[in-house]
Computed example of a mutant assay.
Amino acid sequence: MQEEVLAITQRVAIGKGTTWTVLAGDYRVAEPVEQYLEYLRSTDSSPNTIKSYARGLALWWSFLEQRSQAWDAVGLTELGTFVGQLRRKNVAQEVVPLRSPERAADATVASRIRAVMGFYRYHAARGVEVAGQLYETVHARPGSYLPFLEHVARKHGRRSSVVKVRVRAKPVPVLLPGQMTALREADASWDPAAGVWSGELRYRLLWTLLEETGLRLGEALGLRHRDWKTGTGTTAQIEVVHQEAHPYGLRAKSGYRRIFIGSALDCLYGDWVWALCEAGADVELDDWDGAYIFCNLHRGRRFAPLRPESVYKHLNARKSQLRGLPTEMTPHWYRHTHATALLLAGVPMHVVSRRLGHADVQTTINTYAHVTEDAELRACADWQKITQSWGSWNER
């Protein structure tokens, strides 16, 4: 008996970048899904978002094909069954076992459902009748949080998905000051006798930058020299700029924002620039301002942009050498640590939200609301002293 082929996600190269689409069981593009993914591309969604949504929609398309169900003739029964199978990690099975040893994480299920409901919301706007039945009109309740421009939707209400997956909020992981110091020192240290840095100055700069700015890893690796406004009589700052041309598809998820930094970080960047010049970057690079700050020196094409995979590989090596580093740590922990440190130091939530580049302060509240109530975390370090060492973080 021939095994049935299910829908899959397919990587597609476009120009200098990469995107994703969904192929049905017959290996043809699932046209309704592709229409939605193309809409996401045209509205400047990040490649990672499109990849995640494509994965969720590939599971949904597999579910529909298994049941011989038309995509535009579904209801709450089908969506409920799909959620149940997602939880049990067996979307591809026609018969669902009553007992399953594995359950998918709520966050994973929520991510897949978000993709499916976004797909139907898009088609509802295009006039597909069944899609409009999967949303309901809701009005803000007295005393509830009112998002920006709520008054625009106050008369007619907002459209809300009838299928939602509740995800339990978990405390965000943070790095303690001693752990961040240990990682920096393990990568590069200053030799006062010789007056030079020894070790991997590139990674010391990266870790320090992530700690002091709260940048996402992709945003940091996408910085060019023109984006770093060094302090020459003014406060040094970094401009996070949207770009399309990064060879690895990295981009500023939150669009443009400006982040002020302290003099110590600015001096460290100056030392890195000097190291690059000693390696010949000023001679080999035709466009210094357009070159990426974090680049190859030892492997691959010299001065080509550093890959995120290289950062993760380097960090994993450091975690095996430094016992104090959590084994689950990722570069994104620096972003959580940055926000946590500012909040524990008494910085207003809306200021932290703007620095992180969140589109809505409610995102910051949902993620970090527990921080100011965590007395144990507050007591483990002098967070105000740490944030003050970052320099002019609160400049406008």
Rank of each mutant, 00 (worst) to 15 (best):
V240C: 08
L210H: 06
W272T: 04
V167F: 07
S42E: 14
L79T: 04
W207S: 07
H370M: 11
S198A: 15
R55C: 08
P331E: 02
L201H: 02
S100C: 12
V352G: 00
A58P: 01
T372N: 05
L217W: 03
K229F: 15
R11T: 13
A54H: 00
F294G: 05
L322V: 04
D26W: 08
V5N: 10
Y368E: 00
H156E: 15
E219L: 05
Q133M: 13
R11Y: 06
R318M: 07
V196K: 03
V116D: 12
G218P: 00
V174M: 02
R307M: 08
T367R: 07
S320Q: 14
P47H: 01
L344N: 10
V152L: 15
H332V: 01
E278I: 13
I14K: 13
V130T: 05
L6K: 11
M349T: 03
A186L: 10
V130Q: 12
M329Q: 10
R299P: 06
K155N: 11
A245D: 14
D382C: 02
N296G: 07
G346M: 00
E211C: 12
G357H: 02
T108M: 00
W383M: 00
D72G: 08
A105L: 12
K385E: 14
D282A: 09
E3P: 14
R103V: 13
M329C: 05
T213R: 11
R55E: 15
Q388K: 11
S144D: 15
A264C: 14
R318P: 10
D106L: 13
L6S: 13
L325C: 05
S263E: 05
S353F: 02
V240R: 09
L86H: 05
G178I: 09
W20Q: 07
A131T: 06
V174L: 01
S160P: 12
R378M: 07
P147E: 01
S198C: 13
L205A: 08
L217V: 07
D26Q: 04
V128C: 06
L221R: 11
A54Y: 00
E373Y: 11
L325M: 10
F63V: 01
V95M: 10
I50D: 00
A110R: 00
G143A: 06
M180P: 05
A359C: 08
R335K: 09
S161Q: 03
H350Y: 12
V351K: 06
A140S: 14
R112T: 04
M1N: 12
F260G: 09
P305S: 05
E102R: 08
H358D: 06
I113S: 02
V109S: 08
A54G: 13
G214F: 05
T230I: 07
Y368T: 00
K51V: 03
P101H: 01
W61G: 05
L223S: 10
E200V: 12
H123Y: 06
E4R: 14
Q66T: 11
G262L: 08
E136K: 15
G324W: 08
A30T: 06
V273K: 13
P173T: 09
M329K: 09
T19P: 07
S189I: 13
Q133R: 14
R216T: 00
L276H: 12
S52W: 07
V109L: 07
P97A: 01
R99H: 15
D191Q: 02
W61S: 09
A92Q: 10
E3R: 07
R99L: 13
L176C: 05
I386K: 10
V12M: 05
T364M: 02
L306I: 04
W197S: 04
G391L: 02
T327W: 14
G56Q: 02
T363S: 10
